[in-house]
C-alpha cells in the first residue's frame, strides 16, 4: 500500500490520482464554498428553502386553531408563535371550510387545541421561528 505519489500526483491517496485540470475544478469549488462560509460568518445568509418556497408560492398563508371541532382562523403572528411551541407538525392534508391545510401541529393527544397551517403559512413561519 502506498499513500501517494510524488511530483505530478502529489495529492493522490490510495492510488486515486487527480489530474491537474480536475484539481483546478476542485479549487474553484472550494473558493465558492469559502465565499459562502465567510458570508455566513459575517452575518449575510442565504434565504432558507422555506423562505424561497414562501416567496415563489403564490398561495395565501392560511392558519387556524381547532379545538373540539370548532375552527377559528388566526393571524400569522399568533399562528407562528403558537405553532412553534407545539411538539410536532404532521404533514397531513385537511379541508376545513373549503380551505386545504397541509400541516397539523399539536402538543400531543388529549384535550388540546391544534394548529392547522397550509404550506404557505408553514413556510412563512419557518422563516421566522423554529418550527417543530
Amino acid at each position: 500500500m502506498h499513500f501517494g505519489h510524488i511530483g505530478l500526483y502529489n495529492l493522490c491517496v490510495y492510488g486515486v490520482y487527480m489530474h491537474e485540470k480536475y484539481l483546478w475544478v476542485v479549487n474553484i469549488a472550494l473558493v465558492v464554498v469559502i465565499v459562502i462560509v465567510v458570508l455566513h460568518l459575517s452575518g449575510i445568509t442565504f434565504p432558507s428553502v422555506g423562505k424561497v418556497r414562501a416567496l415563489v408560492d403564490g398561495e395565501e398563508p392560511m392558519c387556524g386553531v381547532q379545538y373540539n371541532s370548532v375552527f377559528s382562523p388566526v393571524d400569522m403572528s399568533v399562528c407562528c408563535r403558537g405553532a412553534s411551541q407545539q411538539l410536532s407538525c404532521n404533514h397531513k392534508s385537511e379541508i376545513v371550510f373549503g380551505v386545504r391545510y397541509d400541516y397539523i401541529c399539536s402538543t400531543g393527544h388529549g384535550d388540546v387545541a391544534v394548529y392547522l397551517l397550509n404550506a404557505k403559512a408553514h413556510n412563512e413561519c419557518s422563516t421566522l421561528v423554529r418550527m417543530p
Binding site: 403558537g82 411538539l87 399539536s106 402538543t107 400531543g108 384535550d111 388540546v112 387545541a113
Partner: peptide, 16 residues
C-alpha cells in the same frame, strides 16, 4: 404556557 387547552406537557400530562 400551560393554560389548559394549550398544553406543552400533553404528551404525558392531561390538564383540565
Amino acid at each position: 404556557d400551560l393554560e389548559g387547552c394549550l398544553n406543552p406537557l400533553a404528551a404525558f400530562y392531561q390538564s383540565v
